[in-house]
């Protein structure tokens, strides 16, 4: 993987901000495969639609939830097979209003990833077709991956 952005990444850096009303994106190309950008939580679904329809990002690889003590963070890793590029989108989620629009209408594969994110961290995805717990019993009261939850349980 060579250092320096590829032609596709330069194109992304130029064309994405105007499509999102010139929001602050912090687009950075790490090498010719991986690029990172940050996104506001209200713009997530719009960004997903633009990436999937205009730029050919067909595959949502992973949705990670991170507990950064003062806020939550969601990291979406989206891959484009045809353009050989992976985008890491970071979304900051405040702890007192942990609601994010769901990207299931764009990528069907996000369905179970978002259920697991809710199950483990407690972030609610608005518009999700099946917002239930997936790994723990349905009546479990806690969210295990939060930093204030101890490993051996309640």
């Amino acid at each position: 993987m060579a250092a320096g952005p590829s032609a596709f990444q330069s194109r992304l850096a130029k064309e994405l901000p105007p499509l999102l009303d010139n929001a602050q994106l912090d687009f950075k190309a790490k090498d010719d495969f991986l690029a990172t950008l940050t996104c506001d939580k209200g713009n997530v679904l719009k960004l997903g639609k633009i990436l999937s329809e205009k730029f050919g990002f067909e595959h949502l690889s992973l949705i990670t939830t991170v507990d950064r003590i003062e806020r939550f963070e969601l990291v979406y890793q989206i891959t484009s097979y045809q353009n050989h590029c992976m985008l890491e989108v970071r979304v900051a989620v405040p702890k007192d209003d942990a609601k994010v629009p769901s990207v299931t209408p764009v990528w069907g594969g996000a369905n179970w990833h978002e259920r697991e994110a809710y199950d483990m961290m407690g972030i609610v995805f608005e518009g999700h077709p099946d917002p239930r717990r997936i790994l723990l019993p349905q009546d479990y009261k806690y969210f295990p991956l939060r930093k204030d939850f101890k490993m051996d349980g309640e």
Binding site: R133, I134, L135, L136, P144, L145
Partner: peptide, 15 residues
């Protein structure tokens, strides 16, 4: 429906 084998590995990895 899954989750019958959940062992809390991601929490275990942090410890």
């Amino acid at each position: 429906e899954i989750g019958y084998l959940h062992r809390g590995m991601e929490k275990l990895f942090e410890n």
